[in-house]
Nucleic acid binder design. Structure first.
Lengths: 344, 344
DNA sequence: GTGAAAGCGCTAACAA
DNA sequence: TTGTTAGCGCTTTCAC
């Protein structure tokens, strides 16, 4: 019925152990033998039984992806896609688990699931990897993990990230290059690790261009559309309006844009608006929003690569494996040259 | 190191097989013994090894969830959450796979993945389950599946769905109850199974109220924000404007709303707009959009329940297991009583 | 370089 | 109602 390693061995005229060697890329197999085995595998279209394998080897060929807040449009999906593709290439499987870090006891649930599936390693995404208690427990269980966009404790394990600060200064520089001098900044929620970095990038680009950073042009936000609306009101309700707004994420950019539209301020003719994340909001907005894209799929794939590597698993989270991937400035319709003179 | 069934057996003073019986809810175990075993399991916080189990029983305790949803509209997230929770309760695990039904050969990829993991069954979501070729191959592989919102071929397998027609007429009735008589309808993309149902529901409610369905008040759409914008232009550019618009989904409602806002038509004072899906768009819109919510998490959970049932798996997709779950009308800010007289 | 034996942790089949 | 025996398909010793 099902093709087993024995069938392959018989056809190739070798022992099961030799087939196993070929399967696992071990040394000490003559090329001729290896070819023969490979041929038999192909001919029989043999697939190793994952369960038998895992049972005898303590490896599961399973990697866990832990996500919190999958409503975060697009991010979770891209993460999943990137990890999934790389897993396929590496002959691993991906088990996605949704966690709710605000729920007490979520760590127990996670660890139970990890234990039951004997995961070979886990990928922790932005919100999850800020949970110190969880990291400690993973370390105690000697379970390799890689964090994506960790924000803090860069040396605690390998991590995959972009240079948030640089990205924020890149988009700010784009606005400056368009002739904007009076640029407002909408900040993210303070608890988020990206918040200070994006602000630092904004300020760095302003200073670099010799432009003042007016504290009244910096308003708080919370990464939501509603928060962007409130910030937009603060910035656009007086007669003294900036010529550009850089919001720390797309949702807030969308909120600010809605306020501009209500107040009859034309985007981008009178006011340029930039966001960050390249989320769904940035693409459905009208006009579409200039933003920064993280290479999320590549980040996830890189995390898989690190996790799959025997070395990494043996050295247990050696942070020297960390990688910083390039971001991309996405130019859309919401930014344009600064108006020759302020509109009011 | 790891707790095995033998440890539990030893602690409870029974044989491994008896523990196995308790684990699998088999009969022929005295209550006292069962209690003792359960106690030992608890005390040792024992988790059965999925691989050992699968290897000896031909069951994997793994369920696959196949999604094709690049935009991750929250639908997929809810689906995943619902399925995951129920899987936990039933002591199953969920393997999420993203598929791209437009990619040639996607079925092979899916079946390879199914074979490698020996999935006990799969849940097919809306776009995936319309693919006849795939269904045939699953049937050939004798792999149980349940479809969620299948649209077509209701008798081909068990399916979990809502009553789309009824939902569309419910929201139409809500508009009528608000005094609207001149209601426009934006249709979905013709290839989507929900499209004719939602339209039928709209027309049924109109007829029921003795209101005419003017063909000029029905415009085509494609379920995107851009499509909603185009439809909105068609409906709102003349001087003869309806007092309400029911768009077949939230994204199109959002597009139409943007057009209204541009044209200075106040929503909901001058124009009521309703959507369908309760998506992210409906909540970030301003004003927020009145819509229909499907109980997506419950639908996914129900699909798991059906799949886990031994009977269903043995009878191979008996359609009598199908279930229709109740939808919900979500009243938000975008609908209000019809204006006393047309605005222009 | 290659193979034989043993066993991973569990459950099916059969006894008792 | 419970226990015993024999594998599931693979990888790990450790021989040869």
């Amino acid at each position: 019925m099902t093709v087993t390693i024995k069938d392959v061995a018989a056809r190739a005229g070798v022992s099961p152990k030799t087939v196993s060697r070929v399967l696992n890329g071990e040394a000490y197999v003559r090329d001729a033998v290896r070819e023969a085995v490979l041929g038999a595998i192909e001919a029989l279209s043999y697939r190793p039984n994952v369960f038998a394998r895992s049972l005898s080897s303590a490896r599961s060929y399973l990697i866990g992806l832990f996500l919190d807040d999958p409503t975060w449009s697009g991010y979770a999906a891209a993460m999943q896609r990137g990890a999934l593709h790389r897993c396929r290439e590496r002959h691993y499987h991906l088990v996605v688990e949704l966690v709710d870090i605000d729920k007490p006891g979520f760590e127990d649930e996670m660890l139970a699931s990890i234990a039951a599936l004997h995961l070979d390693g886990v990928i922790l995404t932005a919100p999850v990897c800020r949970h110190d208690g969880l990291l400690s427990r993973l370390e105690a269980a000697r379970l390799p993990y890689v964090r994506v966009s960790p924000g803090e404790n860069p040396l605690r394990s390998a991590a995959v990230d972009i240079d948030e600060t640089r990205a924020a200064s890149d988009i700010t520089r784009h606005l400056i290059a368009l002739g904007h001098r009076d640029i407002a900044f909408i900040e993210g929620i303070p608890t988020h690790a990206a918040t200070p970095k994006r602000r630092a990038g904004f300020e760095a680009a302003m200073h670099e261009a010799g432009l003042p950073v007016d504290p009244r042009r910096i308003v708080g936000g919370d990464f939501t559309v509603g928060g962007g609306r409130v910030a937009g009101e603060a910035l656009l309700s007086s007669s003294d309006v900036p010529s550009a707004i850089f919001a720390s994420n797309d949702d807030m950019a969308l909120g600010a844009m809605a306020v501009a539209s209500q107040r009859g301020i034309a985007v981008p003719e009178q006011l340029s608006i930039a966001g960050f994340d390249d989320s769904y909001s940035a693409r459905i907005a009208w006009p579409t929003i200039t933003t920064i894209r993280q290479p999320i799929m590549e980040m996830a794939a890189t995390a898989v690569d690190i996790l799959v590597d025997r070395q990494y698993r043996e050295t247990m989270q050696d942070p020297t494996w960390s990688r910083v991937l390039p971001h991309e400035l996405i130019l859309r319709e919401s930014t344009a040259p600064a108006p020759a003179r302020p509109f009011r």
